[in-house]
């Protein structure tokens, strides 16, 4: 039997393909498992968790923009303990690599959360220091190299799982943050989280979101996300997982060529729940057409 040209290893974990459901866009897998064959995915990153859970933000939470959307969910989630006891095993049974996305409001939250996740059968801990939608903490940790390195190093010291740090495109010097996380021991990096944006209701003369600013995702951000992935992949030696507006196999290939070993798909799943399956099929076709033994051969060719 010919070997699977899409397979790869990420943080020592074997993935059947490089297409991962992005955090916050796939729940813990239940909902989409009713609609599509989720076992075909490379991985699933679960909804961003916080230590004690959260009801999320008030008011409008999702708002469409040209070829994209703004969200202000505010990390509504059931908390790390609930995940460990109720969701982790379910996610494991689905088949794809299991990634737990951990957010926090302060250092203690992150460390206690990482500690509790040691009891869960997950493959990778995705350290979310880039959520723009929570008032305290969240993105703050990801804005500067010093704070990003500090939290990365501390979580690494606590966690038994590989740690992939999810970076914010809103950092003034993203490459410096990426390098700092690498030096602090990160096993991988994922980027980008959403761009801080804004919407105004002109009729009502008010901001659409109660938090005023919200996170922009979808095809509209692709060119900027791609540039950032390219810059970061050239600056570090650890694996980079790229995302931001991917809608097709062609888009995924752009991120791989820019240096990402795998991709995540978020917003497009909302528009077309089967988008990731199309992308996986498209990547297989590409390998056949190009005569590639393994798709990883095109990673970082640019």
């Amino acid at each position: 039997m010919p070997s699977n040209p899409l397979k790869l290893t990420l943080c020592g974990i074997s993935l059947q393909n490089p297409v991962i459901a992005a955090s916050g866009t796939f729940g813990f897998g239940h909902e989409y498992a009713e609609i599509l064959d989720v076992s075909r995915l490379g991985g699933i990153s679960g909804k961003g968790l916080t230590l004690n859970g959260s009801a999320g933000n008030k008011g409008m939470r999702v708002y469409e923009t040209p070829s994209g959307m703004l969200n202000s969910i505010g990390l509504e989630n059931p908390g790390v303990r609930h995940f460990v006891t109720h969701e982790a095993d379910y996610m494991r049974a689905l088949g794809p690599a299991v990634i737990a996305n951990l957010g926090g409001h302060c250092e203690e939250d992150y460390l206690e959360g990482a500690h509790l996740l040691n009891d869960a059968d997950i493959d990778i801990l995705e350290l979310n220091i880039s959520c723009p939608n929570v008032k305290a903490g969240g993105m703050a940790f990801g804005m500067l190299p010093e704070t990003a390195a500090d939290i990365t190093q501390k979580v690494k010291a606590v966690s038994r799982h590989p740690v992939m740090v999810k970076l914010s495109p809103n950092a003034p010097d993203l490459v410096a943050v990426a390098r700092a996380c690498e030096s602090a021991g990160a096993d991988a990096l994922s980027l980008v989280n959403t761009f801080l944006g804004m919407a105004i209701d002109v009729k009502q003369k008010c901001a659409v979101f109660e938090n005023v600013y919200a996170g922009l995702s979808g095809p509209a951000i692709l060119p900027i996300a791609l540039r950032m992935v390219h810059q970061v992949a050239h600056a570090v030696t650890i694996p980079v997982v790229g995302m931001g507006g991917i809608t097709s196999a062609e888009d995924a290939l752009k991120f791989l060529m820019a240096g990402a070993v795998a991709v995540q798909v978020g917003t497009m799943t909302f528009a077309d729940p089967k988008a990731m399956l199309r992308i996986i099929d498209g990547l297989s076709d590409y390998c056949a057409q190009e005569g590639l033994d393994n798709l990883q051969q095109i990673v970082g060719i640019l």
Binding site: G27, E31, R61, N71, F270
Partner: peptide, 13 residues
């Protein structure tokens, strides 16, 4: 207002 319609994004809670 909804994004996913299936219960995954928590945009409509």
């Amino acid at each position: 207002h909804m994004a996913c319609g299936v219960g995954a994004c928590l945009g409509c809670t």
